[in-house]
């Protein structure tokens, strides 16, 4: 088991846009919580005007350019293509994708890795809706829409996972490459499409509990247009998967 662990390398892809402070904090926390793991951090910055890339360069001086890779793009081009872009530069046999805004805490990374090793699964996805998981900083409306969306998806899609729109996940690199090419959705429907397509293809998916802290209370608003987008995404997945 130990010898096998040494062979694994984890590429952590973090898309950023104006995350100057958060990217520094998250890099520190990743190094703190993965002391004996072979990993690299790939920051895909979409031309942030706030100097996110300058901070990443400073972090490279502290931690090494081989551990933190800056792979910027000229402008905002969307989340899905950010992962594709990061994936091109990934040298690990596993890929972790997570948000830069600290709603995904790096302290859960060891449990993702451990779960993958124990089960040999192709994907480990973080779930907020089981024991040990949870959310902080959502108002009642946000919770209501979240529950409604979840019940709809569970009733009609039978996805086999409890948290469809979460985006804190560990993939075998080959599996991510396989499913990402067939995903066309945008925003968080993209996260749902990834996991549903993986589930339909028969990949072994495991879940670990994570907590999700919205640091700016009520910042994640779900407006009418998002709900329409979600319903369209649900319909799209019903007829294409």
């Amino acid at each position: 088991m130990e010898a096998k662990a040494d062979e694994n390398k984890y590429s952590i892809i973090i898309p950023t846009y104006n995350e100057r402070l958060n990217i520094a904090l998250i890099v520190y926390l990743i190094f703190k919580h993965l002391p004996n793991v072979n990993f690299e951090i790939i920051v895909v910055d979409d031309g942030s005007p706030d100097g996110t890339q300058d901070i990443v360069k400073q972090l490279q001086e502290v931690y090494g350019e081989d551990r933190i890779l800056l792979r910027p793009r000229a402008k905002k081009l969307g989340l899905g293509t950010a992962y594709v872009h990061g994936l091109k530069h990934a040298t690990g046999n596993f890929v972790v994708i997570m948000d830069a805004d600290l709603s995904h805490h790096p302290k859960y990374l060891p449990s993702f890795i451990k779960k993958q090793m124990e089960t040999g699964s192709s994907i480990v996805t973080g779930t907020r809706y089981v024991k040990g998981g949870g959310v902080h900083g959502w108002n009642l409306m946000r919770k209501l829409t979240s529950r409604g969306a979840n019940v709809l998806a569970q009733t009609f899609l039978w996805p086999g996972v409890s948290d469809l729109t979460g985006s804190f996940r560990l993939y075998k690199k080959s599996v991510l490459e396989d499913i990402i090419s067939s995903c066309v959705s945008k925003g968080y429907v993209f996260q749902m499409e990834m996991i549903v397509r993986a589930s339909r293809k028969g990949y072994h998916i495991e879940e670990v509990p994570i907590t999700f802290v919205d640091r700016v209370y009520g910042s994640s608003k779900l407006g009418g247009s998002e709900i329409v987008e979600y319903l369209k995404g649900l319909l799209y997945l019903l007829v294409t998967t």
Binding site: L25, L29, L102, H105, R128, Y129, V130, K131, G133, G134, V135, H136, G137, L140, K143, L144, R147, G148, N150, V151, Q154, T211, V213, R215
Partner: peptide
């Protein structure tokens, strides 16, 4: 019913916000 039950048992984690502040 599922939405209602889900709302009543919605897992929250206020202590995590404090821990995160310390980490920051």
């Amino acid at each position: 019913l599922m939405v209602g039950v889900g709302l009543m048992h919605f897992p929250t984690c206020p202590h995590e916000a404090i821990l995160l502040q310390q980490d920051v």
